[in-house]
Every structure is written in structure tokens, then in C-alpha cells.
Amino acid sequence: MSLYDRLYDESEKAKVRFVGFISEHGRYDFGIVYTHMFFGKPLVVCMQTGRSSLLSLEDADNLEYLQKIFNLKSKEVAEEISIFFKNNLPPLTMEAEAEH
């Protein structure tokens, strides 16, 4: 019997973007991995804490979720991050949703 069952093993050339910015509440450094995997949602990594999540443009509206996954200290900080993501994450397309 196998120790594990492989769910997927895919390789692709992904576009990766690193963005750093500063606001009145602090400095932010994110890595954004654009991929066709995971329903087209980019993998967003906070370079300061190592916390990561798959995020879509639609997820950027959920301030409580952003605050929780990136361990943000206030709702104001979550609002700043939300605005950044709304300007930098792609919307989910019907093609991406249909692929998975």
C-alpha cells in the first residue's frame, strides 16, 4: 500500500511579480504567483511573514479574511491591502472556472 495518493503533479511556467509599497500604516512586500492552477487564483505571499493564500479579485473585498490570513493588526490596514489587491489581482474568468 502506498504511503500517499498523488492528487496532482503539474509543472508550468508561472508569472511571478514582487511588489513592495509603503503607506501611513506600514510597509508591505508581496509576491504574487499567477498560475492556471487553483481555479486561476494567484498565490499571494507576504514576504515579511511568509503567510500566503490563494486570492482572487473577489476575495479582496473580504476584509475580515484578509486580516486573518495576513495577520493584519487593524481593519484600516486590511482596507489598504484590499485596495492594493483590487488594483493588482485579475478577476476570475469563465475559462478559469471551467478548467477546474
Rank of each mutant, 00 (worst) to 15 (best):
R17Q: 14
N87W: 08
D29N: 12
S82F: 07
L92G: 06
D61C: 06
P42W: 02
V77H: 09
T35F: 04
N71I: 15
K86Q: 14
E24A: 15
Y8E: 06
I32E: 04
S11T: 13
I22S: 15
H36M: 08
G26R: 03
A98F: 13
N62T: 04
V45D: 01
P91T: 01
Y4K: 12
I83D: 13
D61P: 00
E76F: 13
R6D: 06
E12T: 02
E95V: 04
I69P: 03
V45I: 15
L7Y: 10
D5H: 14
Q67A: 08
E76P: 06
L92T: 14
E95W: 04
E10Y: 01
A78G: 06
R27V: 15
E79Q: 13
S74I: 05
D59F: 01
D9N: 11
F21S: 11
V45N: 03
G26Q: 06
I32Q: 04
F38D: 06
R27G: 14
L55R: 01
K68Q: 08
L63Q: 10
P42C: 08
F85P: 02
L72M: 03
D5N: 13
S11K: 12
V33N: 02
K15E: 09
V44F: 01
D5T: 15
G20L: 10
T93N: 09
V45C: 02
V77W: 08
S2E: 15
E58L: 08
P90V: 02
A60V: 07
P90T: 04
S23D: 10
V45W: 02
D5Q: 13
D9F: 03
S2C: 08
A96S: 15
H100Q: 11
R17F: 14
K73A: 09
C46S: 12
E10W: 03
L63K: 10
Y34N: 02
S52K: 07
L92E: 14
T49Q: 10
Q67S: 07
Y4L: 10
N62E: 06
S23P: 11
N87I: 05
N88K: 06
E10L: 02
M94I: 13
K73R: 10
L54P: 01
M37Y: 00
M37G: 00
S82E: 08
E24G: 14
F30E: 04
G40P: 00
D29W: 09
S2N: 13
T49S: 15
L3I: 10
V33R: 03
L54I: 02
F85G: 04
P91D: 02
H36G: 15
E97C: 12
F38H: 13
E95R: 07
Y65D: 06
I83E: 14
S82C: 08
D29R: 09
M1Y: 12
D9Y: 05
A98V: 12
G20R: 10
L57Y: 06
Y65N: 09
D59V: 02
L92H: 05
D29I: 08
N71A: 15
K13C: 07
I83R: 14
A78L: 05
G50R: 03
Y28M: 08
F70N: 01
I69E: 07
R17L: 15
V77F: 12
L63M: 12
T49L: 11
H25A: 11
I83V: 12
P42K: 03
P42G: 06
L55S: 01
F21K: 11
E24I: 11
Y8K: 02
Y34R: 01
P90W: 00
P91M: 00
P42D: 05
F85E: 00
K68S: 09
T93V: 08
N62H: 09
K73E: 11
